[in-house]
């Protein structure tokens, strides 16, 4: 990159800066609010600072920590289920030709196209008869509706570049089906599982409507709690919870940035040995 001409380099820096400002700037007032004791209009910064909002947010009475645990549990669960379903589905779509393949692809993509609320209303009546409404399990399951398309799409891309002859070679060399999965298939598709799982986690993490409808207000994940405080006008507490809410996303992003760079991402597989 050091060979880039100056103009291109400054363009990179500029766009990078705009992107960061675009993403980070809206969060700054939120962060300031969380440490403010009153912040009125003409003031550029609050006159007095306080840790009250944070103390409250981290206390037992606010329910934030419990909600955080619940949200992590639901999102991790929805991600794990997405991987369990999405990897075989992506393999089928990426590797094999079969009758009705395009219909299946469309069905899997449909939740991205159709508004979530329309889907959720239909699922709601089904879940009532199954006794899944107002339960954590029900919320986790309904999160699969928006998470699966991403998982399946990423895995289908991985498997389109994957040569299943590697598995035959492993079997022939003496590997059992399970050993083949562990030593040959998984290493090849791991970048896809990481990228797809990351998508799935973040999509589940940010679900509001689906959680509200299926959880019936009993399953209070962080976005629901956040919305409660935001609509009650407690800007300082909203700021503190907001900070907590975006933390996992930022952490995951930092930890997996190299997988998203395209160097090692969802374009790998066994395509180019």
């Amino acid at each position: 990159m050091h060979r880039d001409p100056l103009a291109l380099r400054s363009f990179r820096v500029l766009t990078g800066a705009i992107l960061i400002v675009w993403l980070v700037l809206p969060l700054v007032p939120l962060a300031i609010w969380s440490f403010a004791r009153g912040w009125r209009f003409p003031d550029l910064l609050p006159r007095e600072w306080s840790l009250k909002a944070w103390t409250y947010a981290l206390s037992d009475t606010s329910g934030v920590l419990g909600s955080l645990g619940l949200t992590i549990f639901i999102s991790v669960g929805a991600t794990a289920l997405s991987i369990l379903v999405g990897v075989p589905a992506g393999r089928a779509l990426g590797l094999y030709k079969f009758r009705g393949k395009q219909v299946v692809e469309l069905m899997i993509l449909a939740p991205v196209i159709v508004p979530g609320i329309a889907v959720a209303l239909g699922i709601h009546s089904v879940f009532i008869s199954l006794g899944l409404t107002n339960t954590v399990a029900g919320v986790m399951l309904v999160h699969l509706v928006p998470t699966l398309p991403y998982m399946v799409l990423v895995m289908a891309g991985i498997f389109a570049n994957y040569d299943p002859a590697f598995e035959q070679q492993a079997r022939s060399l003496g590997a059992s089906p399970l050993q083949t999965l562990w030593h040959v298939t998984l290493p090849a598709i791991l970048p896809g599982i990481i990228v797809g799982g990351l998508f799935a986690f973040l999509v589940s993490w940010s679900q509001y409507i689906l959680t509200l409808l299926i959880g019936g207000g009993r399953v209070v994940t962080l976005p629901l709690l956040l919305f409660n405080f935001a609509s009650s006008g407690r800007n300082d507490i909203t700021g503190a919870i907001g900070m907590i809410y975006i933390l996992p996303g930022i952490l995951i992003l930092l930890l997996t940035a190299k997988h998203l760079s395209g160097q090692n991402g969802a374009v790998g597989g066994f395509g180019k040995p």
Binding site: F166, Q169, A170, G174, A175, H183, A188
Partner: peptide, 25 residues
Amino acid sequence: VMVFQNHLLFPYMTVADNVGFGLKM
């Protein structure tokens, strides 16, 4: 043991790990 035409060496393993694969299994 079948040796495929395009070798099919596991790309994320070293040469030694490839050769030792069958014994490891």
